[in-house]
Design a protein around this nucleic acid. Structure first.
Length: 346
DNA sequence: CATTCGTGGCA
DNA sequence: TTGCCAAGAAT
């Protein structure tokens, strides 16, 4: 049939033209799992280095389950969405306790793991175990919407259910591994949001959006809300050659990562005296520098100002939760990009 | 169903 | 400079 030939063309294109990526060299469910978590909302070029370091350092489920959470976070340093690292660690323990140390091999079982949702479970089940289940990520949503000519907004459940049904039917008889990988690959390299390369696309002859010239109208994407402003005032304190850090607690952003002592402000141009008092610093100090920068997040913009203080003596008493780090120790602790930027300032 | 989680590249 | 958003999941 026509569709069967299109899928053959897709498969042939994938085998000839797909990128050579490290996680495509293995059928080890553990490695594929690590790669899928790393690649959530993350570009391949950014994730590949993290993947190589991660599987080198923690090559199997046992080593990850037995690792310290701080070491797992350290491997994640700078990648963002740090709950992925904590969930990964938690899920490794799940595999040890709930699955007897053997990585689950079905979509249904894989879905039980913390941090593994619809897409990731389908990806692992099809890539590592050949299970027939569509893996629908952002790429496949775009490819599918255009290929089937779906006008529903891609973030809705209605779209998700219809696409799942259509893909499940389309992949009948195909190799689930190759089919899913190929759909993702088409989205990542050809079926781009703007300027899709329809002239070299293996799906072009059957693509509704292309046949009706609707590539600009499909997929229908919801507008994103504007970022809100937040103002963080940090102090970089040096005490006797050591720096002061605080570990973030609670439920918010960057939880369990280290940062300079900070108070949140309202946007007014606070002076260092006010910030220091707000942090409970009453000893004499000397200002060594004053740097500020803007940091973009998904739904907020953080305006951070960093002051570099030198506390004059060893009489300085650390507040509760404050810790001292020398340069060597400091680099071993999990820190995030914001911290790295600040350190470059001082 | 809407928000909240990072980071970096690019038009 | 600003906006967009990439191999999503949890709440």
């Amino acid at each position: 049939m026509f569709m069967q030939r299109v899928i053959q063309t897709l498969s042939r294109w994938y085998n000839l033209e797909s990128r050579d990526l490290p996680w495509r060299q293995t059928t080890d469910a553990y490695c594929i799992w690590i790669s899928e978590i790393i690649l959530q909302q993350t570009r391949v070029v950014q994730g590949v280095g993290y993947y190589n370091r991660f599987v080198m350092e923690l090559p199997n489920i046992q080593s990850l389950a037995n690792a310290e959470e701080g070491d797992v976070l350290k491997l994640w340093q700078g990648l963002g969405y740090y709950s992925r690292a904590r969930n990964l660690h938690y899920a490794a323990k799940q595999v040890m306790t709930e699955f007897g140390g053997v990585f689950p091999s079905t979509y249904k079982d894989i879905l039980r793991l913390r941090g593994v949702g619809n897409y990731t479970a389908a990806a692992i089940a099809s890539f590592a175990f050949g299970e027939k289940v569509p893996a629908i990520d952002g790429n496949v949503k775009r490819v599918g919407a255009r290929f089937f000519g779906l006008h529903a907004p891609i973030h809705t459940m209605g779209f998700q259910k219809e696409l799942f049904s259509l893909l499940f039917e389309l992949m009948d008889g195909a190799d689930p591994n190759v089919f899913n990988q190929a759909m993702i690959e088409v989205g990542a390299t050809l079926c781009l949001p703007t300027q899709p390369k329809c002239d070299v696309c293996p799906l072009a002859e059957a693509c509704i959006a292309r046949l009706q010239n609707l590539q600009k109208q499909i997929p229908v994407v919801a507008k994103k809300q504007k970022p809100k402003d937040k103002y963080f005032y940090y102090v970089d304190i040096e005490v006797g050659g050591e720096r002061v850090l605080v570990r973030r607690e609670g439920e918010g952003i960057w939880q369990q990562l280290y940062e300079f002592p900070m108070i949140e402000g309202d946007g007014a141009d606070w002076d260092l005296e006010t910030v220091a008092k707000g942090l409970g610093i009453v000893e004499n100090f000397v200002v060594k520098g004053d740097r500020s920068f803007k940091h973009q997040l998904t739904h907020q913009t953080i305006y951070a100002r960093c002051w570099y203080l030198c506390i004059s003596s060893d009489k300085f008493v650390l507040n509760d939760g404050w810790e001292r780090f020398n340069e060597e120790e400091f680099l071993l602790k999990p820190i995030h990009r914001l911290m790295e930027k600040m350190i470059k300032f001082t």
